[in-house]
Write a protein that binds this DNA or RNA. Sequence first.
DNA 1: TCCTAAATGCGAATGATTATCATTTACATC
DNA 2: GATGTAAATGATAATCATTCGCATTTAGGA
Lengths: 129, 129
Amino acid sequence: MAVSQKHFRKRDAILQYLRSTDVHPSAETVYESLKPQIPDLSLATVYRNLALFKKEGLVSSVSTVSGVERFDGNTKPHVHFVCSDCDAVLDLHDMPLPASLYQDAETCSGSKISDCHLFFTGTCRNCIK
Amino acid sequence: MAVSQKHFRKRDAILQYLRSTDVHPSAETVYESLKPQIPDLSLATVYRNLALFKKEGLVSSVSTVSGVERFDGNTKPHVHFVCSDCDAVLDLHDMPLPASLYQDAETCSGSKISDCHLFFTGTCRNCIK
DNA sequence: TCCTAAATGCGAATGATTATCATTTACATC
DNA sequence: GATGTAAATGATAATCATTCGCATTTAGGA
């Protein structure tokens, strides 16, 4: 009925949002961020699509912070920092993963490795003050 | 009243169990493993003490696997492997963390780092078959 | 316009974890 | 040994993130 956006898909909006931010949002945060633009968005849809994206490798699950899963639309492997005070999740772009890690892990474990997760916890710059 | 073990503390039993195993148990698993020896153990006690141990640095939280937190009584830093098929968590003892990582992360993030977590996901040897 | 499969909204169900509160225990003191 | 006090615990309710079930809507082709 609307002039345009008949083909608009909530799924696309969710993925787009994940790729546009570096806050590593939770499902709830994705929902709240998109709700103003998409008033009839349902939380279940966010969860469903996040699960789908994960399965398809379009987004990754950083880790769970204070019991809540956090997502990342940046699929390029990189290191994370998690602040245990404010639950912020930051990218440490300047810390590349040693290229050998992957292969080492496969050899060492005798398993088929699919993903590598490296993150640090501590107190972030803001919370130190 | 009992002959001995008047001073026996469930807390100690929980810590002892965590240090004796390498299965990286969940709270539920700790509970079920100790229940036969300690019939009046409560799940709440397990959760309470795990939280306490974590705060004191006596145990660490490996990661949450399929929505369940997994614990490790081995405080020496080491690498983990998580099987996405069977949810097993294994130690990769032969993969030491580069000593510089810690310091690098602190410099790179401008934060106070307290812990480092490195783990791989994939399909373990058993599940490959 | 009609049809079908996929996508979604809504709300209930699930399941892990935490909070509450009464009871018990450990241990120091008398 | 009796007593007082703070910590530890058991039992269960409450919480909260996540998933499920199902009816409805949408997209896109016939």
